[in-house]
């Protein structure tokens, strides 16, 4: 049996290795949810091939579904159902479910008590969604924005749980627009934008490829016209200058004394006053910015369709 999954969305090839966590990273509207729902058999691809656990998600749906766990981005329960009741119900649909009490404890669902689903907080609904995805002991887990709407402490608990799942041999595919989540959890990151794969690799490969270090320049008033181009000329071909916004730039390349001196000279020459000049390691955020010329937008609290 082959675990490798081939996923295609608009000429994009993704492959997922067994027993790993794969993150599909991209801004809202990039096609993350569409990619996941195509793997889950909700959508029939117009072209290309999708194989999940060696099965066609649409044609072999009945054989595939018991083997995968699905967490939707939102909802997924009766409006009047209690959290534990919902979890027990999904458990009853599986042959060898996990003990419900274990998941209630691990995901802190006891606090939901007798509250109906529609009155649970966003974070509680997310945790119930994750619990129902896990309860059937799946081989492969698809989670859509698993920690959107969770507070930081619970997000960390959820990450630990996903790492434990990996240690126990569960394969996870998650979508996220939290860079921190992708960097912390994923063995492999696929960065997608507008339905296309724009970068793929381990977080280390992605952030350390080419220039590993960055200089971030923030100034007090908007840059003069042609600012990135003139700075690029001043710095030479070993560095890359990317505009973040009207008052900040990202310089990727050797963050050494020579680069800093050139940046200072350029500021003096163009009459701009630096407000902050920060040296750092390249992050996935920087990678996305370099590849697309845009920043990954900040997530809305409730999460939106991706």
């Amino acid at each position: 049996m082959r675990y490798g999954d081939l996923v295609a969305v608009d000429h994009l090839d993704l492959r997922v290795e067994a027993g790993t966590i794969t993150a599909v990273l991209g801004p809202n509207g990039a096609g993350k949810t569409t990619t996941l729902e195509t793997c889950e058999g909700y959508r029939r691809p117009q072209g290309g091939t999708v194989r999940v656990l060696g099965l066609d998600p649409v044609r072999d749906r009945r054989a595939l579904l018991p083997r995968i766990g699905v967490m939707l981005q939102a909802g997924g329960a009766w409006s009047g159902v209690r959290a534990e009741e919902m979890l027990r119900h999904v458990a009853a649909l599986h042959a060898d479910p996990l003990p419900v009490g274990l998941l209630v404890e691990r995901l802190g669902l006891a606090e939901c008590g007798r509250t109906p689903f529609r009155r649970l907080s966003g974070g509680q609904q997310q945790r119930l969604g994750l619990a129902t995805a896990l309860v059937g002991r799946p081989e492969l887990l698809f989670v859509d924005e698993p920690t959107a709407g969770m507070d930081p402490a619970i997000r960390r608990t959820t990450w630990e749980l996903l790492e434990e799942l990996r240690a126990d041999g569960v394969t996870t595919v998650l979508t996220t627009h939290y860079l921190e989540e992708a960097e912390r959890l994923a063995d492999h990151v696929h960065v997608i934008d507008r339905g296309r794969l724009i970068a793929s690799g381990t977080p280390y490969e992605l952030t350390r490829a080419g220039g590993a270090t960055t200089v971030r320049l923030v100034v007090t008033k908007p840059f003069p016209p042609h600012a990135p181009a003139s700075l690029q000329t001043a710095l030479g071909p070993a560095t890359e200058v990317t505009t973040i916004n009207a008052q900040s730039l990202l310089i990727t390349g050797p963050a050494d004394a020579s680069t800093l001196a050139k940046v200072s000279a350029w500021c003096e020459q163009h009459g701009v006053l630096p407000e902050a000049l920060t040296l750092g390691q390249r992050t996935l955020e920087d990678v996305f910015l370099q590849l697309t010329g845009r920043v990954l937008t900040e997530p809305t609290p409730s999460g939106t369709a991706g």
Binding site: L65, P66, R67, I68, H89, A92, L93, H94, A95, D96, L98, L102, L134, G136, R137, P138, E139, E164, L165, A167, D168, G169, V170
Partner: peptide
């Protein structure tokens, strides 16, 4: 481990009854 995969559907009659 706790989460070692053991997937499978319950018999249809049991699923329908639960539903």
């Amino acid at each position: 481990g706790t989460f070692t995969p053991s997937p499978g559907a319950a018999p249809l009659a049991r699923q329908v009854r639960a539903q």
